Amino acid sequence: MQAHDEAEVTMSVAVVRVSCAAGWFRDERVSRRLDGVLRYEDLEPCLAELLDRSALRHSARVAAVDRAGNALTYGQMWSSAARVAGGLLDQGVGPADRVVVHYPNGFRWLYAFLGVVLAGGVPVLPDPTCSDPELEWIADDSGAVLTLDGELPDGVAFLDEGAAPDELAVLYYVRKRGGGLHGVELTNENILSTIEAVVHAMDLTAEGARTVLTAPLSTAAGSAVQLLPTLAAGGTVVAAGARGVRVPWRHLRASFPAARCVRGWGVAETGGIGLLLPTDQRAAHPRSVGVPFGGMEVALLGPAADQGVGELLCRGPSVARRYWNDPESTAETFDDGWFHTGDQVHIDGDGFVTPVAVRVS
């Protein structure tokens, strides 16, 4: 009886790595490092430097369009954000200081977020469903020196000299699986890797590329996946939805019939990305959320892992290193570079991932 129990325990923790045999979204710019993780080569040192180059290169282009149809050029956006950075500096915000950004989707959110980045600070982005008491808790837990939710600071234009790739860039507060909130730490390398992956997979380098914002900018899907790659590539983001509420895809297709709608999967812990479904494979894989891309690798955990079913594990250059101020959740969720998603999936021989039972958080 004891031997049987031990065998079951061994099976329950089996990890089976899964490769994407067909090679969709192959990116030759990623290579395996000594820690075993695939990483991008030749990234900019930090988010501020990447965006600064893009803003200078595309200063006359339209960077964003709000729900009322008002347009904002890169030059206008960068000038306003730099003045916010100067105002933050006047209020004592320094390198690595956390600042809560709490506005609905719009130009003010954009100025505030970029202003914190240009000041050398770390934007703290609350889950959009947070209550006022939860926002107060986030400000306290993150050690934020300031919360931006009203009039924006204004000062002499300022741009911090930049940070290192392994320094904290953004802190997303998300719901825990069992309730409550915790912060997901994304470094400059994490964010820049997400940007590179999305720009490459979605071919955002084409002139005139426009991205419709379908998620709140305070989420990784809204800012890391939709906003920042578009700005890095010199494209235009177009607001959709009221106060940052997610928009059903059937409404988007009706409003933007010529747009390309994509399906994928990602959470804040994976930098907002992870899986993407090739457009020409939607009919063949109607329930799949896609295949790994952007240097992401997947594995399965559980007794049926060798049969293609189990808990989805992810690792790659965009995967977070830990939770902020939450060592217990970090130990439970991150293991040797692998992020335990809590989602039960099936992965076929070509690497297509299909949900079986998704966690409820």
Rank of each mutant, 00 (worst) to 15 (best):
240 A>Q: 15
147 T>R: 15
286 P>G: 03
217 L>C: 09
59 S>D: 13
320 A>H: 06
131 S>R: 14
358 V>N: 01
39 R>M: 05
288 S>Y: 05
284 A>F: 01
311 E>Q: 14
225 V>Q: 08
176 K>N: 14
159 L>Q: 11
100 V>E: 11
130 C>H: 14
7 A>F: 00
361 S>F: 05
297 E>M: 07
112 A>T: 12
102 H>I: 03
27 D>E: 09
315 R>L: 01
213 L>G: 03
216 P>N: 14
328 E>F: 04
65 V>E: 15
113 F>P: 11
191 I>C: 14
127 D>C: 14
79 S>H: 10
275 L>M: 12
4 H>R: 12
246 R>T: 11
193 S>L: 02
107 F>P: 12
240 A>Y: 07
145 V>H: 08
159 L>E: 10
142 S>Y: 12
204 L>Y: 06
308 G>A: 06
354 T>S: 09
3 A>M: 03
290 G>H: 01
142 S>D: 13
22 A>V: 10
199 V>E: 09
288 S>I: 09
105 N>F: 00
336 D>Q: 09
215 A>H: 14
48 A>R: 08
71 A>K: 07
66 D>V: 06
82 A>F: 07
235 G>S: 13
191 I>G: 01
35 D>A: 01
212 V>R: 11
196 E>I: 00
43 L>S: 03
76 Q>P: 04
229 P>Q: 12
57 R>M: 00
148 L>S: 03
354 T>M: 02
177 R>G: 09
197 A>N: 08
27 D>Q: 04
144 A>L: 06
195 I>M: 01
260 R>Y: 00
5 D>W: 02
263 R>C: 07
341 T>S: 15
358 V>Y: 05
273 I>L: 15
11 M>A: 15
101 V>P: 00
293 F>T: 08
319 V>P: 06
75 G>W: 01
3 A>R: 07
340 H>T: 07
130 C>Y: 10
279 T>W: 01
317 P>D: 11
91 Q>D: 13
152 L>D: 12
58 H>W: 12
207 E>A: 09
68 A>S: 15
161 E>R: 14
42 D>T: 08
38 L>R: 10
329 S>C: 00
247 V>W: 06
93 V>Q: 10
104 P>N: 09
341 T>G: 03
31 S>P: 01
262 V>I: 14
78 W>N: 13
317 P>E: 13
56 L>P: 00
88 L>M: 10
71 A>P: 00
183 G>F: 06
205 T>R: 15
233 A>C: 10
153 P>H: 05
40 Y>E: 10
303 P>L: 04
94 G>Y: 02
111 Y>D: 15
121 G>N: 08
197 A>W: 08
141 D>W: 05
122 V>E: 05
249 W>T: 15
138 I>L: 03
84 V>S: 07
142 S>E: 14
64 A>H: 04
29 R>Q: 03
351 G>K: 06
361 S>N: 13
213 L>R: 05
202 M>P: 00
110 L>V: 12
271 G>C: 09
171 L>C: 01
